[in-house]
Design a protein around this nucleic acid. Structure first.
Length: 121
RNA sequence: GGAGUUGGCCAGACAACCGCCGCUUUAAUUUCUCGCUAUCUCCGCAGGUGAUGGUGGGAGUGAGGGGGAGGAAAGUCCGGGCUCCAUAGGGCAGAGUGCCAGGUAACCCCUGGGGGGCGUGAGCCUACGGAAAGUGCAGCAGAGAGUAGACCGCCGAUGGCCGCAAUACGUUGUGGCACAGGUAAGGGUGAAAGGGUGCGGUAAGAGCGCACCGCGCAACUGGUAACAGUUUGUGGCACGGCAAACCCCACUCGGAGCAAGACCAAAUAGGGAUCCUUUGGCGUGGCCCGCGCUGGAUCCGGGUAGGUUGCUUGAGGUGUACGGUGACGUGCACCCUAGAGGAAUGGUUGUCCACGACAGAACCCGGCUUAUCGGCCAACUCCCUUU
């Protein structure tokens, strides 16, 4: 399995998996434009779930753009995030950033999450 | 060359690397799973559990090939297909449509035609049925707004009043007043003032009369029809506007939507039928019968999580021939062009140029509407210049 792939096994696929992260959050990264929730999953790889609500980002083009940036940066940063289930939630204003700013913000956020994880250990 | 009209087309390009989702070819048979089957093991009354091997299928993995958002994918405003539910037939209510003819699966769409309006023109716009079935509405202004009307103005023939003259004393002629009255020419108000122009006519006027124009009705002619007509006859002539006011007339219309609907179905709990069983155990009861609970197997029915399907081959494109003014139809040939599902169609770097708008499929089609950086092509119109 290459380090930078992003297949079906690295996503949260069921409502139950999402609920588990929501109700049993261990790590949290907050920003005015986004929120990351995470919890250890006991596997040997991280998994990602996305929540991008129409209420927060109106146009579907912008929603797709945000989801792509999140997935892409997760793909590159996943070596920092072993065995976590992570849920990304978009907040209002995310669509007003340029794609460049979104990418930078996400890469920072993954690093913050990774530091929290290491501090715990 | 400039300005414009109509119709159509494109939607940054190329390369490398890293990803995502279907399809397809192939490999290894290692991991997981299911079916059939053989051997062994353990528990048992009936029957089951586990391990190993063989075989077939599925998932997953590696490698290769090929495909992967739009002209509006949008708004969800119309019309269908498809699915389930309802449904004898008729009427009412409600909603929609509204010049005519055609196209279409259908339409509030499209095409052609007619009427009206705008533009020098190519062209564009048009809810464009009925107001002599009824009810109703019309602010302000204005004298008057639908059975017309007298503010200014005009007239004042006729009647009245006041002069003057004549007189046969009955009146007659003439001048004035604007009292009665007449008037729809002119002014003024208004979106709109009840045909227009001219001549005659009159006290002044007036379709009051006539001519022409216009209008209504009828006939005729042309046209499938809407409608048109240097046509004929007839009527002095309104029958005003609003029906996106009620209404009348004609025609159309069942409801819900792919989260429609169909199928498979674990674990746990639980329903029904048949058969088997140390012809067991427990409860009820003093005891027997009986009743209830408690085993095993097979089958049936409901059905949650989850999965599969519906799901992309279709009123389909492209080319061509023929028919038609055209929308479109028919024949033939070729092509297969996203199918996700916590939701793919992307990221990085480099090069180039006109430096890239609006914007993301969610069952599928036909339209309409709205958003949109720019560019290209064709036909046509007007103006200018040159030959």
């Amino acid at each position: 399995m290459p380090e930078s792939s992003f297949g079906r096994n690295k996503r949260l696929l069921t409502a139950r998996a999402y609920q588990a992260v929501f109700s049993d959050t261990c790590y949290k990264v907050a920003h005015p434009n986004l929120l990351l929730l995470a919890k250890p999953n006991g596997l040997c790889q991280p998994r990602l779930g996305l929540v991008v609500a129409k209420k927060n980002i109106r146009r579907s083009v912008d929603r797709n753009r945000v989801k792509r940036v999140v997935r892409e940066t997760f793909r590159h940063s996943q070596s920092l995030l072993d065995s976590l289930d992570i849920v990304f939630l978009a907040r209002q204003g995310m669509d007003r950033l340029t794609p460049r700013e979104q990418t930078d913000l996400l890469e920072n956020s993954w690093r913050r999450l990774s530091r929290k994880l290491q501090a715990e250990q």
